[in-house]
């Protein structure tokens, strides 16, 4: 196990390096941060000064070496736009995104699992058909469009929930206050919509397959109650794909909360990254991506370990 973990760690390091190189070259290819940040009426002297101030006068490979040197000392650079350490900037915004992502995951499991179970157990019932049709809606509608509709209905027309922004926080978390929770609800639902559909469909197909498995037939034949068959035998088996996908989706939920955050003016990492991309704030983009990659590596590792726990047939490589 230890050998396995060490190896994964080493590989991850390579991924991080590759990532940072790609971003450096990529941002360089897209455009010139100074052109975007500088005041339009700046003269040529001022432009040259800004290029030097941001360290962009060096050749790209030298800029990269400077970055690596600082990164090894834990300094991922300063934001071009805010002049704050990029890492600190992102960590400040992290709780907002985390609670949004976890809120969305929570909602999707809370709603998706029971609905999927129902649709899988009674596939021919009208209820199941409605659920499946609804799940198609969930991933057909573009997030930004649904977001605006949610705001229009629940904030503008009904006035039940606040339209945008993050509410009061307690210890940096907004779900601990009623006001914060009311601000969290709409964006979390918006972000959850796609995941709900995903969980419904995965659960349903898992249930349908499992119900035909010999061991389930056998359990039924043994005279176990339908509830026990469903909740112990079937449920356990469908957890694998659901765990995989939910685990994977947690990472992508965090990474892709960009749209929801910008529609709802949610001050999280997603909004920070899209703002940073729009002005080519390279230090923030690099730091953000490194953090996300790290997160994915951890999530994947956890999912793989969970796999081996949940399904003894899967063994971790290097363990044998």
């Amino acid at each position: 196990m230890t050998v396995y973990l060490l190896r994964r760690l080493l590989q991850s390091l390579l991924v991080l390096v590759a990532m940072s190189v790609i971003v450096f070259v990529g941002v360089y290819a897209v455009g010139d941060p100074v052109e975007i940040l500088i005041s339009p009426d700046a003269d040529q002297f001022e432009r040259e000064r800004a290029i030097r101030a941001l360290g962009l006068d060096l050749p790209l490979w030298q800029q990269y070496l400077v970055f690596v040197k600082n990164a090894l000392q834990g300094d991922l650079g300063r934001s071009f736009v805010f002049s704050e350490p990029a890492l600190q900037l992102i960590l400040q915004k992290m709780p907002a995104t985390m609670e949004l992502a976890f809120g969305a995951m929570f909602i999707s499991i809370l709603i998706g699992l029971p609905l999927g179970l129902y649709a899988g157990l009674k596939p021919e019932s009208p209820g199941a058909k409605v659920i499946m049709a609804g799940s198609i809606l969930g991933f057909s509608l573009p997030t930004f469009w649904v977001g605006l509709m949610l705001i229009m209905v629940f904030a503008v027309q009904l006035g039940w929930l606040p339209s945008t922004g993050r509410g009061e926080t307690l210890y940096g978390w907004s779900f601990l206050t009623a006001n914060g929770l009311s601000h969290l609800l709409l964006p979390a639902i918006n972000l959850a919509l796609f995941k709900i559909s995903l969980v419904i469909r995965l659960t349903r197909s898992g249930v349908r397959e499992t119900m035909l498995m010999d061991y389930v037939k056998f359990a039924r034949a043994k005279g176990l109650s339908p509830a026990r068959v469903t909740y112990v035998h079937v449920f356990k088996n469908i957890l694998i794909p659901v765990v995989t996908v939910v685990g994977l989706e947690l990472g992508s939920t965090i990474a892709f909360s960009v749209v929801t955050e910008s529609v709802f003016a949610w001050p999280g990492m997603g909004k920070l990254i899209i703002d940073s991309i729009n002005v080519l704030d390279r230090p923030v983009i690099v730091a953000y991506l490194l953090i996300i990659v790290l997160m994915f590596i951890v999530i994947n590792l956890v999912v793989d370990i969970l796999y081996s726990v949940l399904d003894p047939r899967v063994r971790l490589e290097g363990q044998a």
Partner: peptide, 11 residues
């Protein structure tokens, strides 16, 4: 795959 999945689509 890790590298790809961790790269935000939009970027």
């Amino acid at each position: 795959v890790d590298l790809q999945l961790s790269f935000p689509t939009i970027l």
